[in-house]
Amino acid sequence: MSSQSELNNTIWLDFPASLKYLNVLGSCITALLTHVKRLPDPETTAYNIQLAVHEIYTNCALHAYGNKPEAGRISISLLIDPDERFLKINLIDTGIPFNERLAVDPDLNEIHIHGYGLFIARQLLDTVSYQRLDNKNSWLLIKYFLSA
Protein backbone atom coordinates (compact mmCIF):
# COMPACT_ATOMS: atom_id res chain seq x y z
CA MET A 1 0.00 0.00 0.00
CA SER A 2 1.44 3.38 -0.95
CA SER A 3 2.01 6.01 1.70
CA GLN A 4 -0.42 8.31 -0.15
CA SER A 5 -3.11 5.64 0.03
CA GLU A 6 -2.41 5.23 3.74
CA LEU A 7 -2.66 8.96 4.23
CA ASN A 8 -5.98 9.12 2.37
CA ASN A 9 -7.44 6.54 4.72
CA THR A 10 -5.91 7.57 8.02
CA ILE A 11 -7.93 9.27 10.74
CA TRP A 12 -6.09 11.36 13.31
CA LEU A 13 -7.39 11.99 16.80
CA ASP A 14 -5.74 14.13 19.41
CA PHE A 15 -6.80 13.91 23.05
CA PRO A 16 -5.77 15.70 26.22
CA ALA A 17 -4.28 13.08 28.55
CA SER A 18 -7.59 12.66 30.32
CA LEU A 19 -9.68 9.61 31.09
CA LYS A 20 -12.77 11.79 30.67
CA TYR A 21 -12.82 11.25 26.90
CA LEU A 22 -12.39 7.49 26.87
CA ASN A 23 -15.99 7.16 25.71
CA VAL A 24 -15.25 9.43 22.73
CA LEU A 25 -12.37 7.22 21.67
CA GLY A 26 -14.59 4.16 22.03
CA SER A 27 -17.32 5.70 19.88
CA CYS A 28 -14.80 6.66 17.18
CA ILE A 29 -13.48 3.12 16.94
CA THR A 30 -16.95 1.61 16.78
CA ALA A 31 -18.03 4.11 14.10
CA LEU A 32 -14.88 3.51 12.06
CA LEU A 33 -15.44 -0.25 12.07
CA THR A 34 -18.87 0.19 10.46
CA HIS A 35 -16.85 0.86 7.27
CA VAL A 36 -15.61 -2.73 7.26
CA LYS A 37 -18.25 -4.49 5.19
CA ARG A 38 -17.56 -8.06 6.23
CA LEU A 39 -16.56 -7.63 9.84
CA PRO A 40 -17.05 -10.96 11.61
CA ASP A 41 -19.34 -10.75 14.65
CA PRO A 42 -19.35 -6.94 14.45
CA GLU A 43 -20.56 -6.23 17.99
CA THR A 44 -18.00 -8.44 19.72
CA THR A 45 -15.15 -7.49 17.40
CA ALA A 46 -15.79 -3.78 17.86
CA TYR A 47 -16.09 -4.19 21.62
CA ASN A 48 -12.84 -6.16 21.88
CA ILE A 49 -10.87 -3.67 19.78
CA GLN A 50 -12.33 -0.81 21.76
CA LEU A 51 -11.33 -2.49 25.03
CA ALA A 52 -7.78 -3.19 23.86
CA VAL A 53 -7.17 0.36 22.60
CA HIS A 54 -8.79 1.74 25.71
CA GLU A 55 -6.32 -0.20 27.90
CA ILE A 56 -3.32 1.26 26.07
CA TYR A 57 -4.79 4.77 26.13
CA THR A 58 -5.42 4.46 29.89
CA ASN A 59 -1.84 3.31 30.34
CA CYS A 60 -0.62 6.45 28.53
CA ALA A 61 -2.86 8.78 30.53
CA LEU A 62 -2.14 7.24 33.94
CA HIS A 63 1.48 6.17 33.67
CA ALA A 64 3.08 8.36 31.00
CA TYR A 65 1.31 11.51 32.18
CA GLY A 66 0.48 10.63 35.80
CA ASN A 67 -3.27 11.24 35.24
CA LYS A 68 -2.67 14.94 34.68
CA PRO A 69 -4.54 16.16 31.58
CA GLU A 70 -2.37 19.28 31.45
CA ALA A 71 0.77 17.12 31.22
CA GLY A 72 0.40 16.43 27.53
CA ARG A 73 -1.63 14.92 24.75
CA ILE A 74 -2.24 11.51 23.25
CA SER A 75 -2.20 11.40 19.45
CA ILE A 76 -3.91 8.49 17.80
CA SER A 77 -4.00 7.43 14.17
CA LEU A 78 -6.44 4.84 12.88
CA LEU A 79 -6.20 3.16 9.52
CA ILE A 80 -8.32 0.45 7.96
CA ASP A 81 -6.40 -0.85 4.98
CA PRO A 82 -8.27 -0.40 1.69
CA ASP A 83 -8.75 -4.17 1.33
CA GLU A 84 -10.29 -4.22 4.81
CA ARG A 85 -7.88 -6.87 6.02
CA PHE A 86 -6.75 -5.11 9.18
CA LEU A 87 -7.04 -2.10 11.44
CA LYS A 88 -3.82 -0.38 12.43
CA ILE A 89 -3.73 2.03 15.35
CA ASN A 90 -0.80 4.08 16.57
CA LEU A 91 -0.87 5.88 19.93
CA ILE A 92 1.82 8.42 20.70
CA ASP A 93 2.46 10.35 23.89
CA THR A 94 5.31 12.53 25.09
CA GLY A 95 5.20 11.39 28.71
CA ILE A 96 7.71 9.44 30.74
CA PRO A 97 8.97 6.20 29.13
CA PHE A 98 6.91 3.07 29.56
CA ASN A 99 8.42 0.81 32.20
CA GLU A 100 8.89 -2.43 30.27
CA ARG A 101 9.06 -4.36 33.54
CA LEU A 102 5.30 -3.81 33.62
CA ALA A 103 4.98 -5.78 30.39
CA VAL A 104 5.09 -9.14 32.14
CA ASP A 105 1.86 -11.10 31.85
CA PRO A 106 0.09 -11.67 35.17
CA ASP A 107 -0.03 -15.16 36.66
CA LEU A 108 -3.68 -16.01 36.07
CA ASN A 109 -3.65 -18.52 38.89
CA GLU A 110 -3.35 -15.62 41.31
CA ILE A 111 -5.77 -12.75 41.92
CA HIS A 112 -4.24 -9.43 40.93
CA ILE A 113 -5.43 -5.88 41.31
CA HIS A 114 -3.16 -4.34 38.70
CA GLY A 115 -1.33 -5.61 35.65
CA TYR A 116 -4.18 -6.85 33.49
CA GLY A 117 -4.40 -3.95 31.03
CA LEU A 118 -1.55 -4.77 28.67
CA PHE A 119 -2.28 -8.48 28.97
CA ILE A 120 -5.88 -7.88 27.86
CA ALA A 121 -4.75 -5.79 24.87
CA ARG A 122 -2.34 -8.54 23.82
CA GLN A 123 -5.06 -11.15 24.04
CA LEU A 124 -7.48 -9.19 21.92
CA LEU A 125 -5.16 -7.88 19.19
CA ASP A 126 -2.68 -9.47 16.80
CA THR A 127 0.10 -6.94 17.41
CA VAL A 128 0.82 -4.82 20.47
CA SER A 129 4.30 -3.34 20.26
CA TYR A 130 6.02 -0.50 22.06
CA GLN A 131 8.90 1.72 21.04
CA ARG A 132 10.52 4.77 22.57
CA LEU A 133 11.17 7.07 19.62
CA ASP A 134 12.34 10.70 19.70
CA ASN A 135 11.43 11.04 23.37
CA LYS A 136 7.94 9.76 22.67
CA ASN A 137 6.13 6.58 23.60
CA SER A 138 4.79 4.91 20.49
CA TRP A 139 2.37 2.00 20.59
CA LEU A 140 1.50 0.08 17.45
CA LEU A 141 -1.67 -1.99 17.56
CA ILE A 142 -2.92 -4.19 14.73
CA LYS A 143 -6.05 -6.29 14.45
CA TYR A 144 -6.54 -8.54 11.43
CA PHE A 145 -10.07 -9.32 10.34
CA LEU A 146 -10.82 -12.88 9.34
CA SER A 147 -13.44 -13.24 6.62
CA ALA A 148 -16.97 -13.53 7.89
Partner: peptide, 15 residues
Amino acid sequence: FVDSTALATLVIGMK
Protein backbone atom coordinates in the same frame (compact mmCIF):
# COMPACT_ATOMS: atom_id res chain seq x y z
CA PHE B 1 -18.34 -1.67 29.01
CA VAL B 2 -15.87 -2.86 31.66
CA ASP B 3 -12.11 -2.27 31.59
CA SER B 4 -9.22 -3.46 33.75
CA THR B 5 -9.51 -0.51 36.16
CA ALA B 6 -13.14 -1.39 36.80
CA LEU B 7 -12.07 -4.97 37.30
CA ALA B 8 -9.47 -3.82 39.84
CA THR B 9 -12.17 -1.88 41.70
CA LEU B 10 -14.32 -4.99 41.93
CA VAL B 11 -11.36 -7.14 43.04
CA ILE B 12 -10.52 -4.65 45.81
CA GLY B 13 -14.18 -4.62 46.86
CA MET B 14 -14.36 -8.40 46.87
CA LYS B 15 -11.23 -8.65 49.04
